[in-house]
Design a protein around this nucleic acid. Structure first.
Lengths: 150, 150
DNA sequence: AGTCAAAAGGTCAATTAAAGTCAAAGTGCG
DNA sequence: CGCACTTTGACTTTAATTGACCTTTTGACT
């Protein structure tokens, strides 16, 4: 972990951890000075690591009084909600599995989680009639949406 | 055992043994230098011997600050098997949750997985009679045991 | 209001530092 | 011999880092 980009990433994450609202604001140049790196390096780290896919929103302003604001967002919730919305009485187990695979491929769940969820779904399909099934499937999916890493 | 690939394999295994967390990180080029071999030889050994089937996970990054991380994945299966053995017709949902919590605290599942599995169990308890329940609970648990990371 | 300079942050292309790929050549055993 | 496994190195791809130059924003001074 002696590469600059990683050091910067950790630095930012630590700052965020010390806030309780998951939002921080920083001055790019000050930070570059503190970390003894090129200011553009900060930009690089932000654009490679603090992406929307990884659940961050970065906003900034130039000019005097400029800043960079980094916020962590629960993107997951939105995508999961969307997935859950596709589930109704008519959907087949195979179709549900496709939805799970999509979540998996977007890194919104691990393959272990995908395997588990598919297994559960199989059980539900086997044992429970269609109408009762729907809310169960949805709530199982949303269980993952509402849990954050580790 | 005087072939290079085997020597490299042993070298890596010895490094791992000297760590207590079964994870090592190394620079491919440095290692190649130390072992006086072509860097690509390291790649070869990793891809033939440190495979997922043999219980390893290899991750790497190119570019400056690049690295190769090798992790041995524990023989979870035994612990999971043990957990599954504790499940019988008499066990309550609360007791099952305790078992899950233990697996979780030993890092044999993530908290997301734990949440998911508990949710599934709740569904099973609610809908399915005791005798039929047991094999389902066991097979759900073992689904996780048999899946390896990522 | 208009202008201008200073103070931010952004872009991009060039450079350097890894690791990966793959085909070809080598080795050794049944 | 023939086949499977090793070994190598030239070439490819990816990641990180920097610095020169660009754009936006503000505020002070006409």
């Amino acid at each position: 972990m002696n590469n600059l980009a990683d050091v910067i990433e950790q630095w930012i994450l630590r700052q965020m951890a010390s806030e309780q609202d998951e939002i921080i604001m920083l001055r790019r140049n000050e930070m570059a000075e503190e970390l003894a790196c090129a200011p553009s390096q900060i930009t690089y780290v932000l654009s490679t690591r603090f992406t929307i896919e990884r659940g961050f929103i970065v906003e900034s302003r130039r000019g005097s009084g400029g800043f960079v604001r980094i916020a962590r967002i629960p993107v997951q919730t939105i995508v999961y909600q969307d997935a859950a919305n596709q589930i109704d009485e008519t959907i087949s187990l195979e179709e549900v599995k496709v939805i799970v695979a999509r979540l998996r491929s977007h890194n919104l769940m691990t393959s272990r989680e995908a395997a588990l969820v598919c297994k559960c779904f199989a059980v539900v399909y086997e044992r429970i009639p269609a109408q009762e099934r729907v809310p169960l499937l949805k709530s199982l999916l949303m269980t993952l949406a509402n849990q954050n890493e580790v």
